[in-house]
Structure formats: structure tokens, C-alpha cells
């Protein structure tokens, strides 16, 4: 599953940041919908990365339940 791949979440985080930068250029920063969207993407991706890598560091699998 693609969801269990940390690279996917990195990509999502990257995407969020890129969109944020683009949005900033276009002056969209204070648009509520845009701000919420970008924030959600960044926060969700970030916390998945945190979960994945901090479990990985201990030699454990964060996606234990989902791999099956």
C-alpha cells in the first residue's frame, strides 16, 4: 500500500510546502480555504513522518496493523 511508504508522506509534505510557496507568491496566504487546505496537508504528512520514523528508529513497524 502506498500509504505505508514514508516517501509518500514526504512527497505530500513537499507538495504542501511547494503549494504554500506558490500560494504566497499569488497572495493567497490569507484565503481561509487555501490556508486550511495547505495546513492540513502539511500537518498530516508531518505527523505521519514523525510516527513512521520514530518507530523505525526503535526497530519497530508503525504500520503493523495495516500491513495485513
Amino acid at each position: 500500500m502506498i500509504l505505508t511508504n514514508p516517501l509518500f508522506w514526504f512527497a505530500l509534505l513537499g507538495l504542501g510546502v511547494v503549494v504554500l510557496v506558490v500560494g504566497k507568491k499569488m497572495g493567497l496566504l490569507n484565503n481561509t480555504a487555501f490556508a486550511v487546505g495547505v495546513s492540513v496537508v502539511i500537518a498530516v504528512a508531518y505527523f505521519h513522518i514523525v510516527d513512521h520514523y520514530l518507530m523505525d528508529m526503535q526497530g519497530l513497524d508503525y504500520w503493523y496493523l495495516f500491513r495485513k
Binding site: 496566504l29 490556508a35 495546513s39 500537518a43 498530516v44 505527523f47
Partner: peptide, 21 residues
């Protein structure tokens, strides 16, 4: 700051997902 609205929203969303996580 000029991006204060975005900042506030981002902070709110970040905290929300922190709780969720």
C-alpha cells in the same frame, strides 16, 4: 505580520492534528 491569518490557521490545524495523533 502580513500572513497572520495563515499563521493562525496553520497553528490551529497543527495543534488539532497533534491532539488527533
Amino acid at each position: 505580520v502580513s500572513w497572520s491569518k495563515f499563521g493562525n490557521i496553520f497553528m490551529g490545524v497543527f495543534f488539532f492534528f497533534a491532539y488527533v495523533n
